[in-house]
């Protein structure tokens, strides 16, 4: 066979690698440099600072609060959407009238930019003019308007709920794909052996869609951890930082207060955190898959 560029894997990989590397490695290097430097409010470097920026972030009480909420936020949304998406996917995998329509409706939130969804919710949650309150009053669930965004105890759960709603389409789609790859013969065989539907689910469906569960958990974890618009558009992390997660805290640190050095340090830490998180999860998932 003649040597052709098509047979040289390095040449084939090169454009993609360069493009991705350019956009990742260079900014990452910049970030590392800034995080170790003394830097003024406009990002101009003013000398080496060692780990000062990292220490400053660590000793900020708001950081620990945001870290904890990020955990609640990520775990809440990832597993919340998981718990809803599995049955939804099972239903959508059945053959019933209007299934295509139901699938389209479930996927609909995906079609809207997260920013726009968050803006719409902000409007719907408004205490006096919001249609959520008037809707709930109309069907008799509440008597007086609830000020959803006034305190973290109502705002944060609502934000997580919105997060779950916008995560469901992607998760359900992955599961649907997984379910559609399971052949009907397996269920047929199980039924002949007298297995109940629940047993069939436990013994056949769950193991076979396990890889799909894992991939959705990993990808969602990454997306949710980094998700900014929902919280920012509804409460901007307030009142009194009580709904801040790391991303919104990062934004405030960097672009409100102009502490770009600390913001860069936080960025690096967030990246490291996510990396450790994901690697651990993937390792655990792979081990349990092998068993």
């Amino acid at each position: 066979m003649t040597r052709s560029p098509v047979t040289n894997p390095y040449l084939l990989v090169l454009p993609g690698f360069l493009l991705a590397a350019f956009i990742i490695l260079w900014p990452l290097y910049q970030l590392g440099t800034i995080s170790l430097s003394e830097v003024n409010r406009f990002g101009q470097l003013r000398g080496f600072a060692g780990l000062d920026n990292y220490i400053a972030v660590f000793t900020d009480p708001d950081f620990l609060g945001a870290l904890w909420r990020t955990l609640v936020w990520t775990v809440g949304i990832v597993f919340g959407s998981l718990i809803i998406s599995v049955p939804v996917a099972l239903i959508l995998n059945e053959d019933f009238y209007g299934r295509s329509l139901a699938r389209v409706i479930v996927m609909l939130p995906w079609a809207v930019s997260l920013t726009m969804t968050a803006i719409v919710w902000r409007w719907a949650l408004n205490g006096e003019s919001g249609m959520l309150n008037s809707g709930l009053q109309a069907i008799g669930i509440i008597d007086t308007n609830i000020q959803w965004l006034a305190r973290a105890s109502t705002a944060f759960p609502v934000q997580i709920l919105i997060g779950v709603l916008v995560t469901i389409p992607f998760t359900t789609t992955i599961f649907l794909g997984g379910l559609s790859s399971i052949s009907d013969d397996l269920y047929e065989a199980a039924r002949l052996e007298g297995a109940s539907r629940w047993q069939a689910f436990r013994q056949i469906t769950l193991p076979l869609i396990r890889p799909f569960l894992n991939i959705s958990i990993v990808l969602n974890m990454i997306y949710v951890f980094n998700s900014f618009p929902i919280i920012w558009a509804t409460t901007q992390g307030g009142p009194a930082n009580s709904t801040d997660i790391l991303v919104t805290y990062l934004y405030k640190l960097g672009f409100r207060f102009g502490k770009l050095g600390e913001a860069s340090a936080l960025s690096v830490m967030m990246f490291a955190l996510l990396l450790i998180f994901t690697i651990t999860y993937v390792a655990l998932a792979m081990r349990s898959e092998r068993q």
Partner: peptide, 17 residues
């Protein structure tokens, strides 16, 4: 790994690029 970086985290570096 590059999937794990949020644009928010990279935005300063990207901007300079």
């Amino acid at each position: 790994v590059s999937q794990m970086l949020s644009p928010m985290v990279l935005v300063i570096g990207l901007f300079r690029l």
